[in-house]
Design a protein around this nucleic acid. Structure first.
Lengths: 155, 155
DNA sequence: CTTGTGTGGTTGCATCATAAAACCATGTGC
DNA sequence: GCACATGGTTTTATGATGCAACCACACAAG
């Protein structure tokens, strides 16, 4: 097979998430959906992408349980695409991508928006990874461990 | 052009980061690099990917300033690929992807590792997004604002 | 009811990216 | 110098992407 190497059976959770949202358009579709876009035409005109690709992506996102098709909402007989909880759970990934760009992009001047706390209108802080006891962790403070609860039995 | 739509000039920071690391393999290469892999052959055997693709990806990551080629390290005359600060800054993105899989994957039993705090060996907490004053923020508590400091002048 | 228009797609190609395998250029051990 | 490992490049086949054209349906006007 010459296929695009599926990570579906991979044990690495990063590979598993890439399987669902690891392509060029999916994250941008989800980004727009978090902004409130719901209709096929809205996505198509906002993102400027080919309609066939959009159709394929939307179907894939629905299959992965990230979007759901809702029958209507404003009377018109067309359907809409709305995020599931699983889809809304992608928000931190988008924030992480955004903050990485903000911090390391070569031409930061081209970034035209900032993510702010709605109540105060002030920029948000960087994502924080903490230990159970609240200590702030960097990559060097972490390790991977095998998951407990794996049954060593053969049957 | 029918090319793979570059997001290089896009003003959205998410699109800009996808431009650099938005493909199937790059994030997995970086994941292994964070684990300490450095050599071409190490990446190739660990990830099981075609060597030509790996060569293209490594070059692209070097071009984007995510990896650097270091002349040597253990005496052998071959070169190594090491993460730059920009590359190490991708860590939160990987954590976000991992936590999303852990929370929403359909077959969580297939995930075999957990990310733990090295000092205590206990699982880390979920990534937290906070306001300047420390309030924990969810997606609904945030908004995008136009970036200040944009010069409205024509010259 | 027929015509027109907008929405929401599908179908055909042309082109690009990806994958596997073969090949090659160097370095390294003996 | 010879065999072998390392680190790639080239070749070729196939899947993915992109654009444009086409189609189906809803809805509204004439």
């Amino acid at each position: 097979m010459v296929k695009r190497t599926s990570f579906e059976g991979d044990s690495c959770p990063i590979a598993r998430s890439l399987e669902a949202i690891g392509d060029w358009w999916s994250l941008l579709i989800i980004r727009e959906a978090l902004f409130g876009l719901r209709r096929f035409g809205e996505f198509q005109s906002k993102l400027g992408m080919a309609k066939n690709i959009l159709a394929v992506r939307l179907r894939a996102l629905v299959d992965h349980g990230i979007l759901t098709t809702a029958p209507a909402s404003d009377g018109s007989a067309y359907q809409e695409y709305v995020l599931t909880p699983k889809g809304r759970g992608i928000f931190p990934i988008l924030v992480a991508l955004r903050q990485w760009s903000e911090e390391f992009d070569d031409r930061p001047a081209e970034i035209t928006t900032i993510l702010v706390d709605r109540a105060k209108g002030r920029p948000v802080k960087k994502l924080e990874l903490r230990a159970e006891d609240g200590r702030l962790l960097s990559q060097a403070d972490t390790t991977l461990k095998p998951r407990p609860g794996r049954r060593p039995r053969s049957a």
